[in-house]
Design a protein around this nucleic acid. Sequence first.
DNA 1: ATATACTCTACTATGTTAATAGAGATTATA
DNA 2: TATAATCTCTATTAACATAGTAGAGTATAT
Lengths: 145, 145
Amino acid sequence: MKITYKGDYALKAVLDLALNYGSIVTIHELASRIQVPFKFLEQVLLDLKKGGFVESKRGKIGGYFLAKSPAEITIGEVIRFIDGPIEPIACVEKGYSGCTDLYKCVFRKIWVDVGRATSEIVDNITFEKLVNEVQASTEAVVYQI
Amino acid sequence: MKITYKGDYALKAVLDLALNYGSIVTIHELASRIQVPFKFLEQVLLDLKKGGFVESKRGKIGGYFLAKSPAEITIGEVIRFIDGPIEPIACVEKGYSGCTDLYKCVFRKIWVDVGRATSEIVDNITFEKLVNEVQASTEAVVYQI
DNA sequence: ATATACTCTACTATGTTAATAGAGATTATA
DNA sequence: TATAATCTCTATTAACATAGTAGAGTATAT
C-alpha cells in the first residue's frame, strides 16, 4: 500500500464531512480547513462521489455531505477506492507471470500476509471512531486553558 | 510499502544466492534463473553490494555471493534498502507539514501501526527460512514423481 | 594476451502524480 | 428572470519515478 496525496486528501475530506455530519459543506470551506488545493479537491470529491462515499447538492447553498453515517465508512474502503489495492505488490491481485518460475513465488504469500495485516487495521477503523478521537483531543485542549 | 520491480528482483536475486550459498554465481546465471533483464540485474546487484548484502569477485571465474549467511538476512532489510521505508506514507518518517492542521493528523498513528504490522512480518523472515521453504517444496515435487 | 566477468555513468521511454485551467450545468433567491 | 454561488467535467502540464538499455572501463584466471 502506498498512500498518495490524493488518498491523503480524500481521507481528510471524509473526516471533515464526518465532523460536520448533518450539515452541508462547500468545497471552499473544506479546502481551507483541510489545507488542500481547491481545484485538486474538486476532483477528489468527484471521485469520492463516484465511490458512493459522499453526495452533493449543486447550486447556491450547495456542497458536499456524507452519503452514509461515519460509522458506516472505514478508512480501508476509502483508501482502496482512491489509491487502489492494499497489497504491496501487483502479483498478489493479478496474474503476474513471474510466479511461474522455479521459486514458485515464495514471496507471494508474504505479500498476501502483509496485505491481510494492513487490511486488519484499516478495515476496522471507521470515521465515527476518528471523529470521537478528534473531538476528545480538542476537548482536552479546551480543558487545559 | 510499495514493492517495485527492482525490489522484487533484488529479493529474488538474494534468494538465488542463498539457495547457492557457498558457491559463486555469475550475473548471467542469475538473470536466466530468476528471469530478469541482465543489464537491470547488474544495477540491482551493485546496489545490493552497496547495502552489504552481497559481495563480488571480478574477472574470470567471478560472480556474486552472499556477504552473510542466509540466516542473517531478512527480507525487511533488503526491501527497505532497495525500495525505501516500509511505511505507507511519507509523513510517518519525515516532517510533513500537513500534520500541523486542526485534525492533528489522526491518520498518522494509523500509518505508524500499519508500518509496525508490516515490519513485524518482513523483519522476521530470513532467507534461511525461505531456502528451507523452497527446498521443501521442490523435494515434495520429487517425491510425487 | 585474452576471454570472462564485474563496474560505472549516462541515457531514454513510459507512466504516475499533483496540480492548474476553464467552460459548462444547476439552483436559491432577490 | 437575472444573477451569484456552487458543483461538474475534460484537458493540459510540470515534475518525478520506474524500468530498461547502452557502452566504455576495470579486474583476473589461465
